[in-house]
Nucleic acid binder design. Structure first.
Length: 117
DNA sequence: CGTCTGACGCACC
DNA sequence: GGGTGCGCCAGAC
């Protein structure tokens, strides 16, 4: 069984261009809904081999940018905007409307019951 | 091996 | 509406 770390990388790689996901969502898709924090840790420790992982598409459940803590906030916002994601402003800092930009896995092909925004 | 840590999330004030 | 506190668990040391 591959490590949780590897699964997180796979999930993030599957996030479509122009969409965002939350840490908790990635954790869920990676198989452990409780390990949201670990998602951040994994992304923080990405090496050159994983530089194709769109880590900037991962934000926190409040639509905020968590990477300011490690000095990657400005970069993340720039990358998001560069691919069309609207990043608004708030007192707490930049915010993304999850309602509009969150990537929701569409299940309509299998269940006929799509997840709607 | 045991401990510490934190790119989080959420239940509760 | 927002601020605080604490449980969480894979990795790093």
């Amino acid at each position: 069984m591959q490590s949780f770390r590897q699964r997180v990388i796979e999930v993030v790689r599957s996030v479509p261009h122009g969409k965002v996901v939350t840490y908790g969502q990635v954790a869920l898709l990676a198989g452990n809904p409780r390990a949201a924090r670990q998602v951040g840790a994994v992304l923080h420790g990405l090496g050159d081999a994983e530089d194709d992982v769109p880590w900037h598409r991962v934000i926190n459940a409040s639509g905020g940018i968590s990477t300011y803590k490690v000095g990657a906030g400005e970069l993340q916002v720039a990358l998001l905007r560069s691919e069309g994601v609207e990043v608004g402003r708030s007192d707490a800092g930049p915010v993304v409307s999850l309602r509009r930009w969150q990537w929701l896995v569409d299940l309509d092909e299998s269940s006929g019951e799509p997840t709607r925004p």
